[in-house]
């Protein structure tokens, strides 16, 4: 089990005008990303509403242990303060710190899960940005998936007759969500983390199994039917593992 702040993982900094928001978000994200360095930089040095150059700078230095850090910000001056802090980092460190243009909470949680899965800096940033697509109108499954996520409606349209289907170059299993609260944040994160351990692309009702926000936006409640599929001939083990996890009820029966 990696230590918190493992140097192979990208760290996250949450910059908010409110220390309570930043600290609350660390608590929330830590549920799904226990080994990622999640650092709050909220409020001013004397605890008022605002942002602090010194706090943001210290948080970035704490979060980046070599693999880089992604910073998520709330309102305008949080971004200004963070950009100013970046100007004062040395060139080497600045090159691996990225401000993600994403909503603080949704983007922060998505980024935390990606970092926990061991994703590299650009992938963690992409995960944060995927939250932009889920928060607007017309955010269909494709839009929700984010970069590199050209949803695969073909697998969703496959025949439902059999619980296990082995079609040309593809494999899928259909399961029913059994845990009481459905695929809410914690089990969804567990699902995404497991999906991330496989190299093959797997979909859940046509959605990328590695996209936390896309999966949460499916709104899968108890009793919902999910089709877990991979068109990759090598994807059988991944589909089975994910289907077994759903079948297990995520330990929430």
């Amino acid at each position: 089990m990696p230590e918190v702040g493992d140097s192979s993982r990208v760290g996250l900094v949450f910059v908010s005008h409110s220390s309570k928001i930043a600290e609350g978000l660390v608590d929330l994200a830590a549920q799904m990303a226990p080994t990622v360095a999640l650092v709050a930089a909220g409020g001013t040095d004397d605890g008022r509403i605002g942002t602090s150059f010194d706090r943001v700078t210290a948080a970035i230095v704490e979060a980046d242990s070599g693999a880089g850090a992604v910073v998520l910000c709330d309102l305008g001056s949080a971004i200004l303060t963070t950009e100013t802090a970046l100007d004062f980092l040395d060139d080497e460190q600045r090159a691996r710190v990225v401000i993600a243009d994403a909503p603080l909470v949704e983007g922060g949680v998505a980024a935390a899960v990606a970092a926990e899965a061991g994703d590299a800096l650009d992938a963690v940033v992409a995960a944060a940005r995927s939250a932009n697509a889920t928060s607007g109108d017309g955010g269909g499954p494709d839009a929700a998936g984010g970069p590199g996520d050209a949803g695969a409606p073909a697998s969703a349209a496959q025949p439902e007759a059999a619980a296990t289907t082995a079609t040309t170059g593809g494999y899928s299993r259909r399961e029913t969500i059994t845990n009481h609260d459905g695929l809410h944040a914690r089990p969804a994160a567990e699902f995404v983390k497991l999906a991330s351990t496989f190299g093959q692309r797997v979909t859940v009702n046509g959605i990328d199994a590695r996209s936390l926000l896309a999966i949460m936006s499916l709104g899968l409640t108890k009793g919902a039917s999910v089709e877990i599929a991979s068109e990759d001939p090598e994807g059988v083990a991944a589909v089975d593992a994910l289907a077994d996890l759903v079948q297990s009820g995520f330990g929430e029966h």
């Binding site: 001013t44 008022r48 150059f53 200004l80 100013t84």
Partner: peptide
């Protein structure tokens, strides 16, 4: 200014 002004004026005037 950068390290003591908590609002947008800190980074803006500081810069």
């Amino acid at each position: 200014l950068i390290s003591t002004v908590g609002g947008a004026a800190g980074p803006l005037y500081g810069t």
